[in-house]
Design a protein around this nucleic acid. Structure first.
Lengths: 334, 334
DNA sequence: CTGTTAGCGCCTTCAG
DNA sequence: CTGAAGGCGCTAACAG
């Protein structure tokens, strides 16, 4: 490995001069500078970022830590990346280890401290994991769950979105709307708030949201949703609407209904949540609650940058408004 | 900030003993060890990984560098992550900067050297960018393009997959199969090989693959594919099969056909490539070429680990076999 | 089993 | 404008 002192020797100057030429932080005489650059070139020198980081006390890197690289998180990551780069830093994405006992947890403090800042998705995080996370470091929490007030937090208007989605179907004649992916017991995840909105819409319409209409979907996979809906159809449980707690779950429902010959939206209407890129293209087009991805990303980045500059402004808990995007899976209002 | 020497002083031992206790790399006497751990606890000490990295000359971190966090790359990342963790390292995912001129390029050598190893997706990489990448570092290239022999490289059996896909439709009666997302001129990306396979299948069936059937899709987005297919239908171009160069493109085609009332698979059959997680759920179920994600991940990890251990075994160029997964978008053979 | 020595490669500080 | 010294926090290698 060729180091800075090699370059210094080759150019006949001190290390400091090499450093100054490379960082451009100090004026260096033209001829000296040329000699240094020539030496850099001829030796093929490259800075060692690890050393720079130790010395500088920062890494110019921000991490986004998510439970998976898919779906909602992929969409968010794609929006956050350019904003972070615009601030002269890098974004790296890490997945929270599936194996919670692992020593390699991304959530270990040393690991978090390797970054100038961290976006941490709280989905799939245990409460005690969150307790161990220090609020001294620049950290912004993302996700649909109650979190301690000592953190900045960006979340969606889940109740409102679910209410909109459900009311949309009720207004269009649906009377038995499933909460697909809902929680039967208590729960602290996104499904909890979204189920609340689903229930609110029912009450606002003078309907009782029957508990039988709440259908859990393990792990919120399309696969599990598919099987849950197939089972409902087999059991002859009547329903004419589906509020899917997210689009991934909605995909499973759409497939199940379509394969069983149930027509969308004439026999059953359906609304999802997240408005994933593909949802517009899944026949008959999935009506979905759009999270305002750009606003999520912009807000999260704003909060993190504020925290990274060392501001001790009070922590903010921001709720991003959502919007219903109407497509073929729900009826047109005449 | 509390450092290791603080802990050492508090515990009344040398720094080395603290280090040994924490890393577990050397045997330390029970009572000493307890004193150290107590000191760590009471001071709230956490290792500084940056310093450890500099000293140890490794970061225990592997990067996967991809053009976007979506689709194919998300699937691959989800498979690679556990394998890397099993080796006691971390995986981080970086996106190649959209802005090629940026100083912050992920591809800069210093950045690559921050990692013990790198998986680099060559999709969307310019040839000169690849030329600048040193082959001395542990790097494994992923992607459907010719690369210099000095790299390890994992790719898919694109020609074979496309041939299978197209033959599948031809055997089922299709006579005019589009190459959706094909390249009209020359090209070096995945679409090139896949188009070759499409043409081969035609010739094997005694058909001439008409150039009019090759339909480019800018950026391979669902959106662009949707519009391309709509235009075809509007122009009355006859076709009864669609080979989509990837599933993202296939989604656009499915939406266009469905919205125009063209029945899949009776009027038009369709096959995609990549077998994304959602493809099984997009009505009527998208027949697709499955890349063998697990094999891709396992092979890539094997090659990288070999390279990270310093092996100078000859570079390998591995082609992963693919398999057609039959679903509702193509007809059943009677 | 524990401690000492000697840096890893870079950059801040202060002289010259 | 350039250089010398020192240290960021940690650990390999070797003593004891």
């Amino acid at each position: 490995m060729v180091t800075m002192s090699d370059v210094a020797r080759e150019a006949g100057v001190s290390m400091m001069t090499v450093s100054n030429v490379l960082t451009g932080r100090k004026r260096v005489g033209e001829p000296t500078r040329d000699r240094v650059l020539a030496a850099v070139e001829s030796l093929g020198y490259e800075v060692n970022l690890t050393a720079r980081h130790l010395r500088a006390g920062r890494t110019d890197t921000v991490a986004l830590i998510v439970p998976s690289f898919h779906d909602y998180f992929g969409e968010v990551a794609d929006r956050i990346a350019p904003l972070i780069e615009a601030g002269g830093r890098h974004l790296v994405v890490e997945r929270t280890s599936a194996d919670a006992r692992s020593e390699m947890e991304s959530l270990s403090l040393p690991r978090l401290q390797m970054y100038d800042g961290v976006f941490l998705s709280v989905a799939g995080l245990h409460a005690d994991e969150l307790d161990r996370v220090p609020s001294s470091a620049p950290i912004v929490l993302l996700g649909e769950r109650e979190v301690p007030g000592r953190f900045d937090h960006v979340r969606l208007a889940n109740v409102e979105g679910a209410r909109l989605a459900t009311a949309h179907m009720l207004e269009r004649g649906a009377r038995r709307v499933l909460a697909l992916g809902g929680a039967v017991g208590s729960s602290a995840g996104m499904e909890s708030d979204r189920q609340t909105g689903w229930a609110q819409a029912h009450r606002a319409a003078g309907l009782a949201p029957g508990e039988r209409l709440v259908v859990p979907v393990p792990d919120f996979t399309s696969e599990a949703a598919f099987h849950a809906v197939v089972r409902l159809l087999d059991d002859g449980v009547p329903f004419d609407g589906v509020f899917a707690v997210n689009d991934t779950v909605a995909f499973g429902a759409v497939a199940a209904l379509t394969e069983r010959g149930v027509h969308l939206p004439d026999e059953v209407q359906l609304v999802g949540f997240d408005n994933l890129g593909v949802s517009r293209f899944v026949p008959p087009g999935i009506t979905s609650v759009d999270p305002g991805y750009d606003a999520v990303a912009a807000t999260a980045v704003r909060l993190l940058e504020q925290r990274m500059t060392g501001s001790d402004a009070p922590r903010e808990h921001v709720t991003i408004p959502v919007q219903l995007v109407e497509r073929g899976s729900t009826r047109r209002l005449r």
